[in-house]
Design a binder for these strands. Structure first.
Lengths: 128, 128
DNA sequence: TTTGCTCCTTCCAGTCACTGGAAGGTCAAG
DNA sequence: CTTGACCTTCCAGTGACTGGAAGGAGCAAA
């Protein structure tokens, strides 16, 4: 099948699939006319990558997970460690964003938001 | 003062201050030897930017907030709107990361993480 | 004076993961 | 024969820095 069909079936943009090929993450056969030609196995790999992507893994992590997936001698410990490293990153990011959210929420509630220039948000940014 | 001192006092890397100058966000005087020369007012602006940065605003938002800060005829409504747009972004990002975290947490708990190859994490990535 | 050190300058390239767009080739339907 | 949807490659841009090279400035110690 053409890249467009593979894109629809993996829910990855065609551009992204070409990019993944360029960086050696996935590959495909080629037809005589130069068009990429994907089979079910290729689509399966693309879907695997699409799911890792939706969980926020980095490209290098997709690569690692794909390699583990294809290695029958892998240990589940290695997979779990990759997932644990990633969830730690996700949690750190959440904590950071939550502290921003909290600070912003305080500021927004302190600000009248009317036609006057007085603004605790600017005051806070300008303090110190 | 030199850029190094301004960097220490604003808690922004010197490289970042030069970058902000390049994009027209801040500016400074120059000494005869070509070195940038910062005064208290400059440091104040840099600190303002550093705080906006720590709240996760984008560079274009720092620019907008600085302009509002410097405009005595601003309305606090405009500042509050900028903050509200930003907090909505932050909340959307938090929600996205939390849904990733939840999915990852399930997977990690389902995985034995031992020497065997069987792994629900890979199974889930490969499903469909 | 020379050495050594820290700080400063500019410029260029790289990061991450795409994304957009230009210019042109392929193919089936009408 | 044209139209339109698809495909190809290549190049450039995104955001917000960050790293590094190559070289100049300024000051203290030997």
């Amino acid at each position: 099948m053409n890249i467009g069909e593979a894109a629809r079936r993996s829910r990855l943009p065609a551009k992204t699939i070409r990019y993944y090929e360029e960086i050696g993450l996935v590959s495909s056969a080629r037809r005589d006319n130069g068009f990429r030609d994907y089979d079910e196995k290729d689509v399966h790999s693309l879907r695997f990558v699409a799911k890792a992507r939706s969980l926020g893994f980095t490209v290098e992590e997709y690569r690692h997970l794909l390699a583990l997936y294809r290695d029958p001698a892998r240990s589940s410990a290695e997979v779990r460690e990759a997932a644990q490293r990633h969830i730690a990153d996700v949690r750190a990011k959440i904590a950071e964003l939550q502290s921003m959210e909290k600070a912003l929420d305080h500021l927004i509630h302190a600000c009248a938001g009317d036609g006057r220039p007085d603004c605790p948000i600017l005051d806070q940014l300008a303090s110190n």
